[in-house]
């Protein structure tokens, strides 16, 4: 399982970074990106789902592998 942030949709609401700082970081402009290759360890799966479900711009997605 991986998380992805669509940079063309992210507007910097900062919800994912607040919910799951283990999975997301923000750049100097405040826009979010997935840390590393976005791989979600099993114990962070619920946080990843919450980050997806709380993004006002529908910018985050989960890719099941």
């Amino acid at each position: 399982m991986k998380v992805q942030v669509d940079q063309s949709k992210c507007q910097g609401h900062n919800r994912c970074y607040a919910i799951a700082p283990e999975l997301f970081d923000v750049d100097d402009l405040g826009n979010a990106f997935a840390i590393g290759d976005g791989v979600v360890e099993p114990h962070l799966a619920e946080k990843a789902r919450l980050a997806v479900a709380n993004c006002p711009e529908y910018a985050i997605s989960i890719v099941e592998e």
């Binding site: 507007q11 609401h13 900062n14 405040g30 919450l50 479900a53 709380n54 993004c55 006002p56 711009e57």
Partner: peptide, 23 residues
């Protein structure tokens, strides 16, 4: 409430610039 995709700071390109400060 854990799932809360609210639009308090707007939607789209004009997302409130000061949202992090306001929060």
């Amino acid at each position: 409430r854990e799932v809360n995709r609210h639009a308090a700071f707007g939607l789209g390109i004009h997302r409130c610039l000061g949202s992090n400060l306001a929060r």
